Computed example of a mutant assay.
Amino acid sequence: MTLLVFFGLTSTITNASTTLDFGPLKSLIGTWKTVQSGGIDVSPAQKGSKVGQGGPAVEPFYEVITFIPVADAINASDQYLTAIYYEQEVFRKRDNGKFHDQRGYFLYDKKNQLVYNSFCVPRGVCIVSEGKAGSKIDFTTSSEGIAQSKFMVDSASTTGFNMMIDFTEKDKLHYSQTTNLKIYGKPFAHSDSSTLEKVQ
C-alpha cells in the first residue's frame, strides 16, 4: 500500500500495479539510477559564466528517477487512462548539487495506444507531450501543451519539447530530449541525455 498526498488530498493506492493495466509502462515501475558514465545537460549559460550569457553550458550529471503506479481516470466519458507518477532528481557530478527537479505522470491510453508525459519543473513551467505507446516512445508537444509563468514567457519561453525514451532492454532506460527555448533574445536548444539502470 502506498500513501500519496497531492495538494492536501490523500489518496490510498492499493496494489495498483497488479490491478490496473499500464501496458508497456509497467516495466518502468521502480527506481532507476544513472549508469557510471552519467548524463549530459547542455543549457543556456548565465551572465558571468565562462562561456558567456546564452552560450552552451555543458554539465555532466547523475540522477534518480522513481516511477510509482497511482490510479486510473476517465476523461469526457470516453478516454480511459492509467497513470504512473514519477519523481526525477538530477545532480551535478562536479559538486553533487541538485540542479533539476521534475514531477510528473506517464499516462497510458490503451484504446488509442498513446502515452502522455505530463510534468512540471519548479521554474513556473509545465509540459504535456504525447507519443505512440511502446517500449520506445517519441514524445512531442505543441504550443497548447506548454504552460508557463509570465516571467518565463517574457524572458525564457519554452516554444517546444520533444523526448525519446527507450526501455526495450531489460532493466535499462535511455532518454534524450530537447527543450526549445527563446532566451536572451535568441533561440536555444536545451538538451539532456542519459542512461539509467533499474535498481529496485
Rank of each mutant, 00 (worst) to 15 (best):
G145I: 03
K136M: 12
S17W: 06
F161P: 04
K170N: 10
Q113S: 12
S176H: 07
F7K: 15
R94P: 02
T158S: 03
K170L: 13
L28D: 09
N117R: 02
Q88A: 08
K26Y: 00
S27N: 06
I146A: 13
W32A: 10
Y116E: 08
N15K: 02
P56S: 13
N75H: 12
V115Y: 06
V115M: 07
Q200P: 08
E89I: 11
M163T: 09
F188M: 10
V121D: 03
T10H: 07
P69V: 01
G52Y: 07
G30I: 02
T19S: 15
G131L: 04
N162C: 08
S135H: 05
A57T: 00
L181Q: 02
S37D: 12
T159D: 12
F151L: 10
V199N: 15
G52P: 04
E87N: 05
S118P: 11
S135D: 12
V70S: 04
I165K: 10
R92Y: 06
M1T: 13
Q148L: 09
N15R: 06
L114W: 00
T158Q: 00
Q113Y: 00
K182S: 06
K98E: 05
F188D: 02
F167I: 01
F151E: 09
D166I: 01
P187K: 07
Y80Q: 08
Y105A: 12
T19H: 15
L4R: 00
Q36D: 11
D171L: 01
F91K: 11
T12C: 03
L114Y: 00
V5W: 03
K186S: 08
Q46S: 09
M152I: 04
Y86T: 15
A133T: 10
G97R: 15
T31N: 05
K110A: 14
P56C: 02
R92N: 13
A57M: 11
L20A: 06
S17I: 09
Y175A: 09
E63H: 02
